[in-house]
Computed example of a mutant assay.
Amino acid sequence: MSHTTSSKKELSPAQREALLSALEARFTKNMNRHKGLEWAKVRARLEASTEKLWSLHEMERTGGEPDVVGHDSKTGEYIFYDCSAESPKGRRSVCYDREGLESRKEHRPENSAVDMAAAMGIDLLTEEQYRELQQLGHFDAKTSSWLQTPAAIRKLGGAIFADFRYGHVFVYHNGAQSYYAARGFRGSLRV
């Protein structure tokens, strides 16, 4: 039964309610992330979008603690980022992308950040988005998160990641095939 549900990217009524109440509680507790926005409007938008709700459920299930960080007045979309204090637990020990994963001769990780994000229906945060997130609090003080890597860097075999240390956001690079127990990725979703 659960296989049909996940392949359709739909939640059961119980899952929907649990997710919506978790999102509402987080929204209410962290008003500094979305000043001037109203939960009722966010909820209405969420309820109209089954597939986006499924993506948010995946963000939540893997430890991302998604929350609203903005509103696009042109499209009416609400913007969610993973707001967990550290890089989401259920998405760590992954290399950057499929190509990086396949280039490893031994000790391959189970997955890559790019593939996981695509399967979840979300985008990796860009460097700019990551810096915006860090304006809302301090994230990744003990972990780090892969970021969307510019094509020119990726073409040369690299990928970028970021963290928060010494009161500063650091963006750095690694080979795309590398992976660490303390590195995952954060995503964004527009609903």
Rank of each mutant, 00 (worst) to 15 (best):
N32F: 01
E58P: 10
C83E: 08
I160C: 12
E110Q: 15
E106Q: 07
H138E: 15
W54I: 02
P150I: 06
K105V: 15
A22Y: 14
N111I: 06
T126P: 06
H107P: 02
R186V: 07
G121V: 02
R91S: 04
D123A: 15
G157D: 02
E102F: 03
S73R: 11
A44T: 11
A117E: 01
T28S: 12
R131M: 08
S103K: 04
Q148R: 12
F170S: 14
E110K: 15
F164I: 05
A113C: 03
R108Q: 13
A18V: 03
Q148E: 13
V94C: 13
R154W: 01
S12T: 13
A118K: 10
F161I: 10
K29H: 13
K41D: 12
K8R: 14
L147K: 07
K142R: 14
L19Y: 02
S84D: 04
F139H: 01
L46W: 00
L136R: 04
R33S: 04
F80D: 00
G175F: 07
Y180D: 13
V171T: 14
G187L: 00
P150A: 05
L156C: 12
D123W: 05
M59I: 00
D82K: 09
V42D: 07
G184R: 04
Q134V: 08
G167P: 06
M1I: 10
R165E: 07
K74T: 15
D67W: 08
A14R: 12
N174R: 05
A159H: 07
C95I: 05
L46E: 08
E60W: 11
R91P: 08
V68K: 09
N111Q: 05
M1Q: 13
V169P: 03
E58I: 08
K41I: 08
H71Y: 13
H34A: 10
E106N: 11
S73F: 10
I160S: 06
P109K: 07
A152N: 15
D72T: 09
A85F: 11
K35S: 14
G90I: 11
K8E: 13
K89M: 14
G36H: 11
K155R: 10
P109L: 03
Q134I: 02
E65W: 00
R43C: 04
D67R: 01
A152I: 11
R45Y: 02
I160E: 09
E65T: 12
V42K: 06
L46Q: 05
E24Q: 12
